[in-house]
């Protein structure tokens, strides 16, 4: 895709790589990438502003900051050991009521959702009879949501 020189120029344009690490051609290319990037940002910013879209740069900066915090917390938790890392700085007496609340919510959901369960459409056909036509029972006793269909098909005329 891109050569190493172009890749370095892009990184330098983004400020990730120091400009001094590039040769003259690379510096020129980095300048072009910078100009292109500025044009794209300017155009995109105007479009976003016109459309009332949120500021992407600000949003992404927030995401980056949050990722960094999480990374630091994970590193600290790893240094403390797995159990303190799992519990964090929260003592057990704080976690116990939270756990009880989660259990209560789960139980409540199970009870309430049970009341709204689909009816059991299992149908046991004990007998059927007809003087004419064909009778066919279409059912799947393994699937209680599926309703049984008792087909009574007229005999073909002629």
């Amino acid at each position: 895709m891109f050569g190493m020189r172009k890749r370095k120029a892009m990184l330098a344009a983004d400020g990730v790589l120091p400009r001094d690490a590039l040769d003259a051609a690379g510096k020129a290319e980095a300048g072009r990438f910078e100009a292109l990037s500025a044009q794209v940002r300017e155009a995109e910013g105007a479009r976003a502003q016109a459309a009332g879209m949120p500021d992407f740069d600000a949003m992404f900066a927030g995401v980056e900051a949050r990722v960094e915090v999480l990374r630091r917390e994970a590193a600290e938790a790893g240094a403390r050991g797995w159990l303190p890392g799992l519990l964090g700085s929260r003592p057990l007496w704080v976690l116990a009521p939270a756990g009880a609340m989660v259990m209560a919510l789960a139980l409540g959901w199970a009870l309430l959702s049970g009341g709204e369960a689909a009816p059991d459409n299992t149908c046991f056909v004990d007998s059927y009879d007809a003087d004419k036509g064909t009778i066919l029972v279409d059912q799947d006793l393994d699937d209680p949501t599926q309703a049984t269909v008792i087909w009574v098909v007229d005999e073909e005329e002629g």
């Binding site: 009816p119 149908c123 056909v125 269909v149």
Partner: peptide, 15 residues
């Protein structure tokens, strides 16, 4: 002339 006897669950439906 068609007759059938079935048993269904409370609230169930058949066709």
């Amino acid at each position: 002339d068609f007759r059938t006897k079935v048993r269904i669950h409370d609230g169930g439906v058949f066709f």
